[in-house]
């Protein structure tokens, strides 16, 4: 017997019955109870063949190794830095992962990354007890000078980036901003003039607000051309 209570892209809340059938398989954000598949988060239903999963609409970033994230240096140690990446615990950037150049023993580490600096870095290790190690060695990983940081919901990062970076490139082209998006939902935006920065910020916030809508690209295109006057 096949019975599904919701359509693809419907909004569900915890405890809502998505399907009453053994034909579907519960994936992320759902669980099975007897015959039914129940939602366990506030999210949008996504049905892929027999797989039922949720795209969450809120929630903390949970780091996974390989993620490129943006973080804020919260303290400088003797041979490491502590970085806030939006998770409950702070992440550690060890000395040997910090740069490719040679750092003298006992050197002042705040010369490289100081308290309050924003950095684009990569998660290289996450242990079972969620101790997180970061690295700065890799293409595009650097200290972020100037600009501003805005925060979006981590599950909406794919929409901000778009397919093969289509959405982010659209904003970059129209506004002339430099934009860097971390998997943790921290977005760095920098431009020479404050107005472009404002427009790019507005666009990213609009995507964050309307991520589940269809026709998002058209909406953002019209928003950008209206704002930039081009």
């Amino acid at each position: 017997m096949e019975k599904i209570n919701v359509k693809d892209k419907d909004l569900v809340v915890p405890g809502e019955i998505i399907a009453e059938s053994m034909d579907y398989i519960p994936a992320a954000g759902t669980y099975r109870d007897g015959n039914s598949i129940i939602a366990s988060q506030v999210g949008i239903v996504s049905i892929e063949g027999r797989l039922v999963k949720l795209i969450p609409l809120s929630g903390r970033y949970v780091p996974r190794s390989g993620d490129t994230v943006i973080g804020k240096v919260t303290s400088v140690g003797f041979n490491n830095w502590f970085v806030d990446i939006g998770y409950a615990n702070e992440a550690v950037l060890p000395l040997k992962e910090a740069t490719s150049e040679y750092i003298d023993k006992g050197a002042d580490l705040s010369r490289y990354y100081d308290f309050g600096d924003y950095i684009a870095c990569q998660v290289i290790r996450v242990t079972r007890s969620m101790a997180i190690d970061l690295s700065m060695r890799g293409p595009g990983l650097r200290k972020l000078n100037g600009g501003k940081i805005i925060y979006i919901t981590p599950s909406k990062v794919p929409r901000v980036i778009g397919k093969q970076g289509s959405m982010i490139n659209l904003i970059k082209d129209k506004t002339g901003c430099k934009i860097s998006v971390g998997q943790n939902g921290w977005v760095w935006i920098q431009a020479d003039d404050p107005k472009s920065e404002m427009i790019a910020t507005k666009a990213v916030e609009e995507i964050n607000k309307k991520a589940q809508n269809s026709g998002l690209t058209e909406h953002i295109t019209s928003l950008l051309s209206k704002e930039t006057g081009k």
Binding site: V13, G15, Q41, S58, R60
Partner: peptide, 11 residues
């Protein structure tokens, strides 16, 4: 708690 996005069996 649901608004904060935690995994919950039910409200």
């Amino acid at each position: 708690l649901a608004d904060a996005g935690f995994m919950m069996k039910d409200l």
